[in-house]
Amino acid sequence: MIAFFLRMRRRLARVLFTAAAAALPVLAFAHGISAEDRERMLSGGYLQYVGLGATHMLSGYDHLLFLFGVVFFLNTFRDVAKFVTVFTLGHCITLVFATFWGITWNYFLIDAVIALSVMYKAFDNNGGFQKHLGMASPNLLGMVFGFGLLHGFGLSTRLQQLPLGDDSTAMLLRILSFNLGVEIGQIAALTVMVALLAIWRRRPSFERLSFAANQLLMVLGALLLLMQLHGYLHDSDPDSFRFPEQEHRHIHEDMDVEKTVDPSRNTL
């Protein structure tokens, strides 16, 4: 019997890994501000920013995975509303203020930390703090608010890739329009998530597979982390690295990398 369960566990692990690996190419291209979006926003009105915010959230796999983890075990509408409100408040603060004041960072690194938040929630859902660390889970409401601030900062780095203009009033209205779209997209996604989870909880399979579902969530978070770190290390835009292109070239000049060949020896 024990051997049977061990075989089933290994098979389940292979299934989870295969599913996560199959999803990775979709995740890799689902998130971000495209060149077409940037061009469209040059003459776009506020409604276009609302639409962009909604589609950005609906394609924001990292934000949606985290929200899925947050509402996974919430049984009442009151609990869902409480945690979602705290998360929304957090990401609105950093989205609006960081964008308006031009506070930014390398978005690959921010998204890597957001991926860690997905892994954190899956670890917490499976009782990881109690099982592996011998401690109670940190205050969940506070953690959701803190991660909301982080997710909003991630959204801000994407929004700052758009032409927001120089007029402060118009810029603020564009930011608020984008933020409104994000909230609309979040409500739409959460409606589907909460409805599906409510249906699933009534079935016996929920008890059997809830642990595996959160394990899959953790695997997806880990793959997103690797994807973002890979993007950071192989970024095609040199100026988005910690060292601008000019500094990178100066380092090579200081090392005389381009002077390692002595052409005068050709005449020997």
Rank of each mutant, 00 (worst) to 15 (best):
I251T: 13
R174V: 01
L133G: 09
L149I: 10
H132G: 01
K82I: 11
R203C: 07
L42S: 01
R14L: 15
L159M: 14
A112V: 09
L141V: 13
S177M: 09
F153T: 03
G134N: 12
D167V: 07
R174H: 06
L6H: 05
R10D: 07
A20N: 07
V261W: 11
V113H: 05
A170H: 03
G128I: 07
A188P: 06
P238V: 07
N214P: 12
F129S: 13
A23P: 01
Q215N: 14
S137E: 14
A23V: 06
G44Y: 00
G231K: 10
L64Y: 01
I187E: 08
S59G: 11
P263C: 03
E258G: 05
G134E: 09
D124L: 13
N214C: 10
V194F: 14
V144C: 08
S59E: 00
A21F: 14
N75S: 11
S34F: 03
Y61G: 00
V71P: 00
F129Y: 14
A22V: 15
H250T: 09
G142A: 13
G146S: 13
F243N: 09
A195F: 14
D167K: 06
A19K: 05
A54G: 00
V144W: 02
G69E: 02
T191F: 14
A54K: 02
P204V: 01
V50R: 02
D239S: 08
L109S: 01
Y61C: 11
S137T: 14
I184R: 06
P25M: 10
A81W: 11
V118T: 12
F147E: 03
G146C: 15
R10C: 00
R40G: 10
V86A: 15
T191W: 08
F5N: 00
R10V: 06
L16H: 05
Q246L: 12
D37Q: 15
F206L: 07
D37V: 13
E253G: 13
K131Q: 13
F17Y: 07
L176W: 03
H248C: 02
G231W: 05
L164G: 10
A189W: 04
Q130L: 13
K131T: 12
L149T: 05
P238N: 03
V192E: 04
G134F: 10
W200H: 04
L159E: 04
M143Y: 07
G134W: 07
A81F: 14
Q215H: 12
L216D: 09
H248F: 11
Q161S: 13
D237L: 09
A122T: 12
V86K: 03
Q215P: 00
L216V: 08
L180S: 10
A21W: 09
D235E: 10
Q246N: 08
A136G: 08
A115P: 06
Q186T: 08
F4R: 06
I33H: 03
